[in-house]
Design a protein around this nucleic acid. Structure first.
Lengths: 144, 144
DNA sequence: TTTAAATCGGATAAGTTTGTCCGAGTTAGA
DNA sequence: TCTAACTCGGACAAACTTATCCGATTTAAA
């Protein structure tokens, strides 16, 4: 469904948001450990998320990554996905046709539209805070 | 969502089924042309589908690929997908966790389950005949 | 001012998917 | 029996994703 980059990105964002609620800034190392991901690869993903403005990076000693507390309930899961995987998951044709639409649909067009629409709504109605909340309450996990 | 292999495979299967309804057997070349796919790569996919028993292949002159008319309303879209992409699309965790379940869920577990379940139901309730029907009626397309 | 703990960013490697090439085998029909 | 039109299957190549390495830069604190 999502690329590895996107999976790591979502987990990292959830972790950073949860730490933000505890007023912590977290290092790359700490993030990679928390989400069980390769450190250097995770760095690239965090840079991408920082460039997009989803997370903030702070350089230098005692630096790291953070999300402003006031923003964690505003960032949608869909934004994280779009930053890393683009919008093909919402927009693309299920069979990869370039010009697939209601006027000239592919054989799975109608049925796929419903699924993709449900996915879009789900991603757009879930915030980073929602993800962090589960972690905070010990109801959800980022490893195993 | 699906791999390129799977996209080509679904299109090819739909095309073969539609031709089967016209009592035609079709060659690799004809299939690749109809679905606008690379010939040699399509060959691999058709071989895979033939091995799985989804389509039938006939060697030699005037050979090609076909689906028995009596089977086109029995083959589910989910079987085609499973043959080419496996079942990770139904079973895998949205964030790639190996041990993600209701007891120890990832942050998107519940929400993803619903989407994947909808996808599963859709793929299992769509037959190859459904796909061919749209083509036959000129309502759906395999190119562009 | 020096040091150590960080991120940044470019180069490169490994792995997977996608795509190509070609010789061998199969079969209908001339 | 020969030929032409097919599929089969292995080896290879290209492109993309995933992952690693390392030097440069930034910054807090001793």
């Amino acid at each position: 469904m999502f690329s590895k980059s996107c999976e790591y990105g979502i987990k990292a964002t959830a972790f950073i948001a949860n730490e933000a609620q505890k007023h912590n800034r977290v290092s790359l190392k700490a993030i990679a450990k928390a989400i069980d991901s390769p450190v250097a690869f995770t760095a690239k993903i965090l840079q991408q998320l920082a460039r997009t403005g989803i997370i903030d990076s702070v350089q230098g000693a005692s630096g790291g990554f953070e999300i402003k507390l006031s923003r964690i309930n505003k960032i949608k899961l869909s934004e994280v996905v779009a930053a890393l995987d683009g919008d093909s998951i919402y927009k693309g044709c299920g069979l990869g046709l370039k010009a697939c639409n209601a006027a000239k649909p592919c054989p799975v067009h109608d049925k796929f539209m419903r699924i993709r629409e449900a996915l879009r709504i789900m991603l757009e109605s879930t915030t980073v805070k929602d993800l962090a909340q589960g972690l905070k309450e010990g109801k959800t996990y980022l490893k195993r």
